[in-house]
Design a protein around this nucleic acid. Sequence first.
DNA 1: CGTGGCCCCTGTGGGC
DNA 2: TGCCCACAGGGGCCAC
Length: 280
Amino acid sequence: MPELPEVETVRLGIEPLAGVPIERARVARRDVVRDRAGKRHGAIEPAMLLAHDAIARTRRHGKQLALVGTSGVCVLVHLGMSGQLLVLDRGGRVAGGHAHVSWTLRDGRRLVFRDPRRFGGVWLLPDEDALDARWATLGPDAMRVTGAMLEASLARSRRAVKAGLLDQRALAGVGNIYADEALFDAGIDPHRACETLGGEEWDRLAVGIVGVLGDGLRRGGATLRDYRRPDGSAGQGARGHRVYGRAGLACLRCGQELARSEVAQRSTVRCARCQPALSG
DNA sequence: CGTGGCCCCTGTGGGC
DNA sequence: TGCCCACAGGGGCCAC
């Protein structure tokens, strides 16, 4: 569930840990930790997990979050579907288990990566060049996308436009929720092939993407299912959803019943009147 | 290469 | 009341 606004909210929650020395790092489940090549089960060097280091700063691209150590070592975190990064006070405990990686700071606080479904994970990268190389395979960050960028990466594709938005190599940060929201905002049918969109539509879509992501961020991320902010509280984002999770309910713009369908094996909700299919 | 489909995994909630 | 199962979905991988 975490998409860009949720990941950015997590990043902002982690930022106050910058500069605090990390006493030790502990891995409870080795298979959620991977090396640069994506291999699991490798010997895990404590320094690669920022032990005896400190977070110098945090970075984000799309849905990916990185802790950059003062040594230059980078810990890349994917939250996947159910991943959380929790900041616990001294003596604080993780409810519900599934705490796979834990960093103990000198001031007694702990940073914990928890992920019940393990679609997420932690990647250990030796330096920021490796991080940049990895992120270079992703599309532009959705928070700053423009119509021209979308057009450049998707306009020649025959895929459904929603499938294009979900492809992280084309656009980084949009998932199922905000794809539906942005397409509704732009008045574009999720099923339409990318190649049928015109320049003005790509512009509208970019405005919609930036708008719905900004709204989500201002609410502190969506509050559906597993997502929690680093302090454990739920976000408020679901209140702002206009189509996601509202199949069968009335369109908030025109009153028409919202329709459920499927695009790229993902549940999709749209208003057939506000997001018309191409006629003819 | 582009694209669609399957699968990984666990918690939840709806239906019976 | 309790059990079962469909569903939730990001992304890796594979087949065509």
